[in-house]
């Protein structure tokens, strides 16, 4: 069963992959076994992260990048992540709108994903989807995320090249974007440079980056700032050239720093993976218990306050729960 699924995916079967990604997203039991078996087929794709505020033009940019990469004969997987509505748990995944012209191209696989889980976990399923694309043999995997939460920054950290997209006239916005975004950015793109205030933004931006750009393992890489007009297909070629340069710089790093980087990423991913399992499994364990339901009743009828309930549940269940699972 696992073997035949793995074989199909490695042979690039779209439906099997699509179904597996759905299962990953839905945390269907048993998918971990497939992912374990798939892992040895990964590690060949080049992963590009695209991050920036909503409406910055990321999807448009990705669409154009895909076009150019296809002209070069490369196969591409696109993973487009949009935020889940905190109120309803639903989401409108609208990135595909900008990329639909590639939908009939067999060399391109586009998949939309919502951020979902309340306990984090975005990085987890994203990482797994990247593995699926990778195992399918895609040359490039482009991951589009809205750069607002810690999760998104973590995703950026596991991409080989991270592109941060900003737009002119968003001075305040730049402040609002987590400072962490600046640290993970390998390339900065000022999109919508058809706007009149683009040059001012470039200026402001250089200043911002000079402040935050102090990384030890960058191997001398100076994050370039590019101007682009994604809707008019301007600046895309330059962006791909910079990505290629960055790729070469990474390759040229000393063996020690390569290992150092790999370790850092592995640590991040491993911690993330454990975090999700811990939180989910422990919480499931507690919320399914009789004590939990009793506590709820007590809080509702006023015989217990939630603070005490929390303390009691954790001290009663936690060590126990961990041993059991």
């Amino acid at each position: 069963m696992v073997d035949s699924i793995v074989e199909k995916i490695v042979n690039g079967d779209v439906r099997t992959a699509a179904k597996l990604i759905g299962d990953i997203d839905n945390r269907v039991p048993g998918t971990r076994e497939i992912l374990k078996a798939l892992y040895k087929h990964t590690g060949n794709a080049y992963i590009i992260g695209i991050t920036g505020a909503p409406g910055a033009g990321k999807s448009t940019l990705v669409d154009e990048m895909v076009r150019d990469l296809r002209l070069q004969g490369k196969t591409v997987g696109v993973l487009a992540v949009d935020p889940t509505s905190p109120l309803s748990g639903g989401a409108i995944l609208g990135d595909r709108v900008r990329m639909q012209r590639h939908s009939l191209d067999e060399g391109v696989f586009i998949r939309s994903l919502a951020t979902r889980g309340q306990f984090g976990g975005l990085t987890q399923s994203t990482r797994s989807v990247i593995d699926v694309f990778d195992a399918m043999g895609k040359d490039y995997i482009i991951v589009e995320t809205v750069g607002v939460g810690q999760d998104e920054i973590d995703i950026a950290k596991s991409a080989h090249t991270t592109v941060i997209v900003v737009v002119p006239g968003m001075g305040d916005h730049i402040q609002a974007i987590k400072a962490g975004i600046f640290e993970v950015g390998d390339i900065f793109v000022i999109n919508k440079s058809d706007r009149s205030d683009a040059n001012k933004t470039l200026h402001d931006f250089k200043a911002m980056i000079d402040i935050t750009r102090k990384r030890s393992t960058n191997g001398g890489w100076e994050p370039p700032i590019l101007m682009a007009e994604a809707v008019n297909n301007k600046g895309i070629v330059e962006l791909l050239i910079e990505i290629e340069k960055h790729r070469k710089t990474r390759k040229a790093l000393s063996p020690e720093s390569i290992i150092h980087n790999k370790k850092a990423i592995a640590q991040l991913e491993l911690i993330d993976m454990m975090k999700i399992r811990l939180v989910e499994e422990v919480l499931n364990h507690i919320t399914n218990s009789l004590e939990f339901k009793e506590c709820l009743d007590c809080i509702v009828d006023g015989t217990k306050d939630p603070y005490s309930a929390c303390d009691e549940l954790l001290s009663a269940k936690l060590p126990d729960g961990l041993q059991q699972s």
Partner: peptide, 9 residues
């Protein structure tokens, strides 16, 4: 979306 579904538009 308001009903909790994910919509690929």
């Amino acid at each position: 979306m308001d009903a909790g579904m994910e919509v690929v538009y």
